Amino acid sequence: MIATKGAEMYKHILIATDGSELAAKGLAHGGQLAKHVGAKVTIVTVTEPWSALEMATLAHSGHSDIIQDFEKAAREQATRILDAAVKALEGTGVEVGTVHIADSHPAEGILRAAKEKGCDLIVMASHGRRGIRRLVLGSQTTEVVAHSEIPVLVIR
């Protein structure tokens, strides 16, 4: 149970999402917490830098503007993820903003967004979309927990 001083505890909650089903649970939980304590929310999604292997594969298959194509696809994916996240929190009465951190490793982007936006809590899923890592606390979540200067609420 959240103490009655909860509204004083959290004023700006950062909710990280990658668009996955588990991240949606984190979004819902973070949105309800924000509503309960009267906090505003910033939703963040992070797109990773392109890899040389991906670029080589695309170049080999005939793409000519591979970096521009990758960046455009990343922006479009981030927009879809953030739009869906905002829609999920519609009707809650919570003030919601979004941020897309491009060309960053997820944990670094999440921590940077929290700092830049002045957040006092990070809410994120216990793991993301990454294969075998889904079986344990995700490596990006572990990194955020280890390096965050503010509390991190991990949703399983």
Rank of each mutant, 00 (worst) to 15 (best):
K115G: 05
V37K: 06
I122R: 02
A34V: 03
Q68L: 08
K25N: 14
V44C: 09
I81R: 03
E143Q: 11
A84D: 15
D120T: 02
A3P: 15
C119V: 05
I81P: 00
A3Y: 07
I155Q: 03
I155C: 01
G93A: 01
P106T: 11
L111D: 03
Q68G: 14
A85R: 07
A3V: 12
H60M: 11
L82T: 09
L53G: 07
K87V: 07
V94K: 07
D83I: 04
K11N: 06
L22M: 14
A102R: 11
L135S: 14
G128K: 01
A146H: 12
C119E: 01
G31Q: 05
T141Q: 09
E54A: 12
T141K: 13
V144T: 03
V99R: 11
R129N: 12
V41E: 13
V94T: 09
M124K: 00
I15K: 07
K11I: 05
A84V: 07
P151L: 13
L135Y: 11
T45W: 03
S51K: 15
M1T: 08
H63I: 06
E76M: 10
T79Q: 10
R112S: 09
H100A: 11
S51I: 09
S139W: 04
M1G: 14
L53I: 10
V123E: 06
A28S: 06
L135W: 12
D103F: 10
G30F: 09
G30T: 05
G62E: 15
M9C: 09
T142Y: 05
L82I: 14
A7C: 08
K25W: 03
A28K: 15
E54P: 01
A88F: 02
G138M: 07
T47P: 00
D65P: 04
A39Q: 04
T141R: 07
T92P: 02
V99D: 04
V99P: 01
I155W: 01
A113E: 01
S126D: 05
A16S: 15
H12A: 06
R133W: 00
K11C: 03
S64H: 13
A114C: 10
V154I: 08
V86Q: 11
L22Q: 12
A113H: 00
I13V: 13
G6H: 15
I43N: 00
M124W: 03
T47L: 05
T98N: 08
G109A: 05
E54L: 14
H36G: 02
D120N: 11
